[in-house]
Design a protein around this nucleic acid. Sequence first.
RNA 1: GCGCCAGUAGCUCAAUUGGCAGAGCAACUGACUCUUAAUCAGUAGGUUCGGGGUUCGAUUCCCUGCUGGCGCACCA
Length: 508
Amino acid sequence: MADLTDPLAARREKLARLRAAGVDPYPPRFSRSHQAAEVLERFAELEEDASVRVAGRLQSLRPMGKTTFGHIEDASGRVQIYARRDQLGEKGYRLLKTIDLGDFLGVRGSVFRTRMGEISIRVEELVILAKSLRPMPVVKERDGERYDTFQDREARYRQRYLDLMLNPETRETFRQRSRTIAALRRLLDARGFLEVETPVLQLVYGGALARPFRTHHNALGLDLYLRIAEELPLKKLIVGGLERVYEIGRVFRNEGLDRHHNPEFTMLEFYWAYADYRDAMDLVEEMLRAVAREVCGGLEIAWGEHQIDLEPPFARRSMMELIREATGEQVLEQDAETLRATCRRLEAEMPPDASRGKLIEKIFDLAVAPALVQPTFVTDHPKLVSPLAKSHRDDPERLVERFELFVGGQELANAFSELNDPEEQRRRFEQQGALRAAGDEEAHPLDEDYLMALEHGMPPAAGVGIGVDRLVMLLTGAEAIRDVLLFPHMRPRTRGAAPAAPTDRGEA
RNA sequence: GCGCCAGUAGCUCAAUUGGCAGAGCAACUGACUCUUAAUCAGUAGGUUCGGGGUUCGAUUCCCUGCUGGCGCACCA
């Protein structure tokens, strides 16, 4: 005899009882006439009407002898069910004894309002649609107040399905994420951009300054990299004449993880022939406006204690000017030693091989970026850290035509007038090679295949990359990237030496 | 990778100076035909994260490992 105080054993025993009674605990389908929310919304026309058929997960159960109340929940919401023995019959009512919280049920019955005023379904037929064998955490609710909520962060990330079934705000966050991406796609489509897909597995990675993941192709006996950006293949499409292309895809960077970083994340990149980085700023402003309207219903967004205003136009400030205002330093004129000293003053010890460009970026990150709460385009970066950007029309020796959009102290977008001079591109790659030789593991590798494409001629073009996860964080007020990723990267769970399946509540 | 903090029943959390490991919810049994954190009576449930040490005695003190959270560093 199974120990019935063990919830797992108790549920398996009920499952066996159902099967013994000839009930299929996992029937193939159930046809619904209404969603839960519809029953509530259309109560006036449904009341005491024929029958509605609703299905969902059982979220609460209150048996009271010959009467039982409960709530079933579907994607639209939850509705109360009311079962009576005299209505269901002896046999039908006994089925309730084999039901647990978390089971999927289908009910048929009439809609009415209880004495306490809650719109409910008087159950005339009850069907088990899927027996649940593990107890889910129980969240109770009264007068809108929720008790014993499921808040353990680790469990929420590792078992997102529990988070989704128990926390409505989690469901809302991911709906907002989906709406954000849909809105971006709609806007680009409307502007004549073509959505494309480019390879994730690459022989030479590129398009950003970052360390890659490595993988291996067995049949070809070939080591490959997972892409760190979408950039280079997309620009080959510009060479090919597609003129306006974009990709929303996963990129992979082999770096540490924290509140703002996951090893794989979603990047939107678009490339726009015959436009420059200033045109791109206009379009990015419009994209943020469209997305904020769609997802937040307005252009004012709460961000911690601040209100962020996404009404265009955004501030456009040169990086060097911002650094000068914050530190008094004319960094563009200074040598590496002076820059390193400034870093030290800002409490960052930089590696001895760090280039001037990296040092300037660091100074910016420490002294300027955190204060950029309202949307700000930071423009005109040092050439050394921007190997794919076109030299600046006003200062071609030292600067490039580039912007990064900062909102809430975070970088949301990175863009430039694309470098389309193949000879200069080769020299920039070679310069990166020198940085790499000096120990910079993030320096951009030389890509002959890309250079060949450029030699065929690429029209002037603007290119933009937007960190979709961070955009969603901004729009949803999430403070960690994990809160906007359905399945954030987690260390594997191990028990002792042997790798084990993820632990689950109720596991012996 | 470094620093700080945490890990006790399925869940949320207690446990005095180092002295019998507890409560609520969930589970199980019973009562209850308009309840809603249903209520009432009862039952069961523990490798106190793993390993080692100190001690007559360790949830508690020490060492070590694992996992997580937060911060720093790197990156977007």
